[in-house]
Amino acid sequence: MRLRALATTAACGLALLFAAAPSASAAEGRFTYVYNDPSGAPHLGGLVDPPSGVCITLREVEHPWTTPAHSPRNDTDATAVVFSEANCEGDHFSLRPHGGHASERLKVRSVVFS
């Protein structure tokens, strides 16, 4: 009887071990972009070691009445997919890891890293 209880306990422990959620991962490095303040002056914004697999709306340009950010540069170790709208909606474009970038013609409001 003890052997059966021990086996059941061990099986449950292994099931919990394999069912545990994976640890959160992050893209290592920096992602930068240019945004304009209400007066039109340009500023450099950025994310350092952003989480992977999570949509990030750029706070400076999250509202539709603001001018979108532009000139994104991906110096992380993950692919960055940038979106023209908040909440990773609208048109999208992929930037390769370690230096992928785009010109000021690419308008950006959100990003997700793979």
Rank of each mutant, 00 (worst) to 15 (best):
G29L: 04
V81M: 10
V61S: 03
A41N: 14
A102S: 13
T76C: 03
A15S: 11
G40N: 13
T8R: 14
F93R: 15
S103V: 09
D77F: 00
V34L: 11
A26Q: 06
L58A: 01
G90W: 11
F18S: 08
E89N: 13
V54Q: 14
N87P: 00
E89W: 06
R30H: 04
D77P: 00
H63Q: 09
A78N: 06
G99I: 05
L44T: 13
L16D: 04
A11Y: 02
A11H: 03
A5F: 13
G46S: 04
G53K: 12
N74A: 02
E85H: 14
R96P: 00
A27C: 13
A69S: 03
V112Q: 11
L58Q: 02
L17Y: 14
E89C: 05
R30I: 07
C55W: 06
D75S: 03
A10W: 10
R4T: 12
A27L: 05
S71G: 05
P42E: 10
S114R: 14
A10R: 08
G100F: 05
F113S: 09
G45L: 01
G100M: 04
N87D: 15
T57C: 05
G45M: 02
A15F: 13
V61M: 03
E28R: 06
A80Q: 06
G99T: 07
T9Q: 11
D91S: 15
A80I: 05
V82R: 09
P51A: 11
S71I: 03
E89I: 02
P97R: 11
D91T: 14
G99L: 06
Y35I: 04
A19H: 09
S84K: 10
T76L: 03
A7N: 07
L58M: 01
T79H: 06
G29E: 02
R105G: 15
A10S: 11
S103M: 07
H101T: 10
T9P: 00
H63L: 10
A86Y: 11
A27R: 05
K107A: 15
D75T: 00
P68N: 07
A21F: 07
A86S: 15
W65H: 02
T8C: 14
E104I: 06
R4D: 12
R30S: 06
A80F: 04
G90Q: 13
V34K: 10
A80E: 06
G46H: 03
L106F: 11
H43N: 12
S71H: 08
A7H: 09
A41S: 13
R59G: 01
R73G: 01
T66L: 04
G46L: 03
V82H: 10
L106C: 11
T57F: 03
A69N: 01
R4G: 01
V34F: 04
F18P: 01
F93N: 12
G90A: 13
F18L: 15
H63I: 00
H63F: 07
